[in-house]
Write a protein that binds this DNA or RNA. Sequence first.
RNA 1: GCCGCAAUAGCUCAGUCGGUAGAGCGCGUCCUUGGUAAGGACGAGGUCACGGGUUCAAAUCCCGUUUGUGGCUCCA
Length: 660
Amino acid sequence: MSEQFTVYLPDGATKTVAPGETAYAVALQISEGLARQAVGAKVNGQVVDLHRPLADGDQLQLLTPRDPDSLEILRHSTAHILASAVKRLFPSALISIGPVVNDGVNGFYYDFEMEQPFTPDDLVAIEAEMKRVIAEKSSFQREPVSRDEARRRFEAEGEPYKLELLDAAEGDITIYTHGEFNDLCRGPHLPDTGRVKCFKLLSQAGAYWRGDSNNTMLQRIYGTAFFDKKELKKHLHRLEEAKKRDHRRLGRELGLFTVSEKGDLYHDEVEERSYFEEIGQGLVLWLPRGARVRETLESFWRRTHRQAGYEPVFSPHVAHADLWRISGHLGFYNESMYKPIAVDDEEYLLKPMNCPFHVMIYKTKAHSYRDLPVRLAELGTVYRYELAGALHGLMRVRGFTQDDAHIICTEASLEDELNKVLRLALEYLRAFGFEGFDIMLSTRPEKFVGEPSLWDRAEEALRGSIQATGLDYGVDEGGGAFYGPKIDIKIKDAIGRTWQCSTIQLDFNLPKRFQMNYTNSDGEKVAPILIHRAIMGSLERFFGILTEHYAGDFPAWLAPEQARILTISERAEAAAVSLLAECEAHDLRVELDNRNESLGKKIREARLMRVPYLFVIGDREVDEGTAAVRSRQGEQFGSLSHEDAVAWLAEKSLPPSLDL
RNA sequence: GCCGCAAUAGCUCAGUCGGUAGAGCGCGUCCUUGGUAAGGACGAGGUCACGGGUUCAAAUCCCGUUUGUGGCUCCA
């Protein structure tokens, strides 16, 4: 009674296997090479081990290193190998959890409870031990067990974290074993440890058990793994590249900004304390060259927003505590606000957001449905008490400027407004060369304010506006804020990292709290809909992202210095000075290097400062009344008369125009 | 805020076993007047983050503080 199973391959082919046979057997049937290569299988859409028995009628896809799912299997298995190596070298280490991560790191980590944190030397030793585990080629054994059995085993091994995970685990319990190492794990894994060819441990850091700061601090090791040595190399190179692009480094080298520079001043013996010459954590100083970029960004922003029908406004940095009481910030945002400032007998607070001010601007007069929508825009500097450990260059600061705007509209015009906002946001971002977008729609959470029917209509309007762009999007069900649904846009930079910048949020709460209204066509006063939106998010952060995106090579329209005039000898000075004056008269950001240095040195320095264009003037050019034009990359544009050079640079420096 | 790591000249960094500091770049002066990524010489510049302790002696060892940094957390 040897009955046979039929399984279906992705190309529609069928294979016949005996009961109990595995995906591996099917791979062998197809070719030995495939069997050698296969790392796992997808059965009826679910990723499983290569050695999982098949059932009749299964849809089978063999996973080779080329499949994206394979990488996850590889990395997860490498995490297990890491854990087993750590247990060998540090028997007292307690294992906890070791998942694959795709966010930024592109690898995996494993958390351990350790008596001592790992040192860099430990990482080297662990890597060496991992190589031994790999050389052993132990097979990964999957073992379905009962909860009691699993409990008994991890109790015997003295692994409290595993017991805790067991309690939290849903569904069937499986244990994966390779060599002497057992781990509670859903799998799947590689056939054996020998399949891991190239991996690297990257870093070590503390991390709380289950991400809760009330729990024990565990020691986390990050690593990554690839099937192909070249891929690993490329990845490490990318990490290096990212380091080279680090905006903190470029910010210093290019003289763009500085964050909370500290200098020691003196120690006061009487007061018994030291005074530090510093601004304060997370506060940014824009240096002249960075400020020029910011100015350009700001005027670009103003121009596009006027064009898009926004009214620029300004609001103060502080406001009476009552305003924040009415807005509700004192209740739900208190932890992120700077402590109050005493003014007479009253309390004032530094603004963490601009919304209450824009609401107050709206409320300075009565509105009719005829004059909606009102679009108020402001580059508003806000202050938020971010945790000290979270601060990072310009990416996470405590004082930053939002490109904030609030649109107050009727429900009838909501969809139209959302379409416009989204279109503006995408056009604006594309102007900087951002092409990839991750769009996420977040819907009603469990705790919310407002009418469910309004939420539904609003979510539909948001969805409709995304669909109008033709771009893909994800939905974070229940991920909206309590006051309204939202759209977030993440941009992909030049090396593929994603950054969340733009957000479009509906607010059903503030209009109610501030009793905002307008008169509708029936003469009734009704509440408008409030849309919060930001495109760059924070100017500081956006500037940091741009710096890394361009790797410091700002396009000419943004560059702090669009061209530099280089003299070859003193004889060129007069001509250079006159060209400089002509450039400045045309509002071009141009500087003159007439130092007593060689041309080679001047070019080198101009390139290091990433000046897009160089105008070289020597005897020849003086005679001709020209300048020799080249780019920072070395492209030659020939000799242009001063007039032509200015016009040429002006054209190269034109800001992008948006199709709104 | 929590855990690890770090702090030496404006910048990047060296400094062995504890014996009061070095390099390159930058900066200043002078020479050189040059042709597309570094011309040469000389010089100035540091309470080794801050405070305390151990020691005959501390940049170095210990403790605390500050700041930075890698994570965690948070991110209306």
